[in-house]
Nucleic acid binder design. Sequence first.
DNA 1: CGGCTAATTGAAGCCATTCAAGGTAAGTGG
DNA 2: CCACTTACCTTGAATGGCTTCAATTAGCCG
Lengths: 257, 257
Amino acid sequence: MDAQVFRIAPAGKSGGGQADEGGKCGRCAYRTLCLPLGLSERDLARVESAIGCRRRLVRGDVLFRAGQPFGNLFAVRFGHFMTSRSDYRGERYVTGFQMAGDMLGIDAIGNGEHASTATALEDSEVCEIPYARLQALMVELPQVMEHFHRTMSQEILRDQSAIRVLGILRADERLASLLLNLSGRYAMRGFSPRRFQLRMSRDDMARYLGLTLETVSRLLARFREQRLIRLDRRELEILDMARLETLATGVQGAAGR
Amino acid sequence: MDAQVFRIAPAGKSGGGQADEGGKCGRCAYRTLCLPLGLSERDLARVESAIGCRRRLVRGDVLFRAGQPFGNLFAVRFGHFMTSRSDYRGERYVTGFQMAGDMLGIDAIGNGEHASTATALEDSEVCEIPYARLQALMVELPQVMEHFHRTMSQEILRDQSAIRVLGILRADERLASLLLNLSGRYAMRGFSPRRFQLRMSRDDMARYLGLTLETVSRLLARFREQRLIRLDRRELEILDMARLETLATGVQGAAGR
DNA sequence: CGGCTAATTGAAGCCATTCAAGGTAAGTGG
DNA sequence: CCACTTACCTTGAATGGCTTCAATTAGCCG
């Protein structure tokens, strides 16, 4: 997708989306996603001391809810999340899907309260990062500050990319762009860009894409007929990456080859 | 609108959207928008020393272009800007409209190059803020850092709000939400929330709202027939704020009364 | 098994687009 | 000053893509 940011794949590729077990950031498979590269041992220790406890969630659990006071950022260690908001009318819309190495809660800094609700799409684990401590750390370690600024700016790019999707793409193009977005993010994490599970429901996808769940369902069926994908419930295989890219971007890209 | 952030109106309300003339930040009418409150004289001087020269632009001038290397952020002193991007296919879409006190270029931090093109919608002036110097300043003055983080986070909120508009609102609701967004931002700056000029073309509005210019034109005509607005070319007067809000949010808000 | 949620599929209808033509205001050059 | 150009905007008619409403199916868990 558009604002896709190229990061480094995890050092140790453990099987099912799971970050390394016991230990601190230095051992975390996704440290290159949430920390600056090239921190010294000493600095790394300072970062680790700023990070709070880990929290486990099971599918359906809410990590934070829109409107709650903001205190912590969260880094996803493993699992998947979805952030959504509700309209004045109660209409729900999904602002993003997050996976290992992604950060949650950034949109809360501006007003001091969470703007969205983060829900675990499967059993997951996060690192709690107290924002006050992170701020103190950023004063001490400008590298960490710069990294944080890039992280926030990339969040802006992601949202702008979503604006493009919603603003100018047709329904099939939107869906293609979502599938490719997920594919690219799995690739960055060392997983297969061709086969993965859709962790979210058709309804979640629809609410992310500004469509109805019926349209998403119909389009997935069409993609299957056209042999662009194979799909069994939520088990997805991308068969024709190039044509999906042509749909999503109008240009044949180079991803996944 | 949704992610609207309440800021403080300018100290000296000079006539036509013009910031105070000669002088530094301490004298700028919009300092409360781009600087933290309650800086000491000394700290203010340090901030001022970090800010680069001012730049004047005439209508149509491009401040920066998507793809250009990133070096400076810009604070709008007076005038109006529009940020837009182009698709892989060359399809243009507008990511935002900026006015006095707003910041430009934040989305460039992530990748080190500008993601969007900023165009002056009328004769305007900006303060150039070298990002490297701002970074150094933030290390020294945590207040400035925190303020900057809020600014970035609010940019995220704005974009998410745009996602809502594009994702779940109908065309008339989208247009209502744009008019109210502008109205609210003028109010925050001490200008009339009821009467103002639309600085952008119908096409720009359409590309911001994910519509065609014909639809925007037709809807403006309908709003006029329904006595929601009065409109002469780009001169707008909001006649029925409450009904516009009902359109945009489904709820009758309290803005503009 | 029954009850539930999630997903699929069909048919009708509407909202926004597309295509097309015409109008208006401002600017330019003779 | 006026014809001409240009950019911007308005309005109409027809099309189509997506939604809405509705019914059915598939998988899951107690």
